[in-house]
Design a protein around this nucleic acid. Structure first.
Length: 111
DNA sequence: GCATTGACTAGGG
DNA sequence: GCCCTAGCCAATG
């Protein structure tokens, strides 16, 4: 268990229901935009319960994998109200959650 | 510490 | 539209 590992888990848990995020997005949220590779590894370990790892899909809407149970993942996503094709998510561009919520914070903290 | 792997991504054929 | 190759980061052996 490392800080990065934990950070990734947290990012995944922040994904709102009915939305999906790509490994790249999770990596960005974790603070390592180039670590989507590790994200996949961590997801594979997916120890933390309550972590909607099924909401984490590949780029372009590819489901990616789910311990080999793509069927289950597809069902879960569909249960969330997400249209899932045979191997890709429909409306992925619309359902994609990059973690960049409008952020209407009073303080415009521009970098 | 080095080498291999992995639920990846982007580009070319 | 599908298949292959190259690049990348972190974890594991």
């Amino acid at each position: 268990m490392t800080a990065f590992h934990r950070r990734v888990i947290q990012a995944v848990r922040q994904i709102p229901p009915g939305r999906v995020a790509t490994y790249g997005d999770i990596a960005v949220l974790a603070g390592h935009p180039r670590a989507w590779r590790a994200v996949g590894n961590i997801m594979r370990d997916c120890d933390e319960p309550g972590t909607p790892c099924h909401r984490v899909i590949g780029a372009g809407g590819a489901l990616g994998g789910y311990g080999g149970s793509l069927h289950l993942k597809r069902e879960l996503l569909r249960a969330e109200g997400i249209d899932v094709g045979m191997r890709r998510v429909r409306g992925f561009a619309t359902l994609r959650w990059t973690g960049v919520k409008k952020a209407k914070s009073p303080s415009s903290r521009r970098r």
